[in-house]
């Protein structure tokens, strides 16, 4: 059910929806970072380029955008 591998550039922000979740704000879309992992992403305002997959088979309680499972992180 997972999509193709994509690369997204954006800024990390913490959302207070539900119990709280980490969001990756890209230019076109805001993604919910799957399980907030890896932990190095959990910094407010961090600029990153991440590679991974949109998990269409996953649902969440925060519901702030498509769920993005991060595989690689590059800090900008």
């Amino acid at each position: 059910m997972s999509g193709d591998t994509i690369t997204v550039e954006g800024t990390m922000t913490h959302s207070s929806m539900g119990m709280g979740a980490w969001a990756l704000q890209g230019d076109k879309e805001t993604y919910e970072v799957y399980q907030g992992k890896p932990a190095e992403l959990q910094q407010e305002g961090l600029r990153v380029r991440v590679t991974g997959q949109v998990r269409k088979d996953v649902m969440t309680l925060a519901m702030i955008g498509p769920v993005f499972e991060v595989q690689q992180v590059e800090t900008l």
Binding site: Q35, M59, L61
Partner: peptide
């Protein structure tokens, strides 16, 4: 159906 991180799969749901 959701783990501690607040996510789960459609199959479980």
């Amino acid at each position: 159906v959701l783990g501690a991180s607040g996510s789960g799969t459609v199959v479980d749901i």
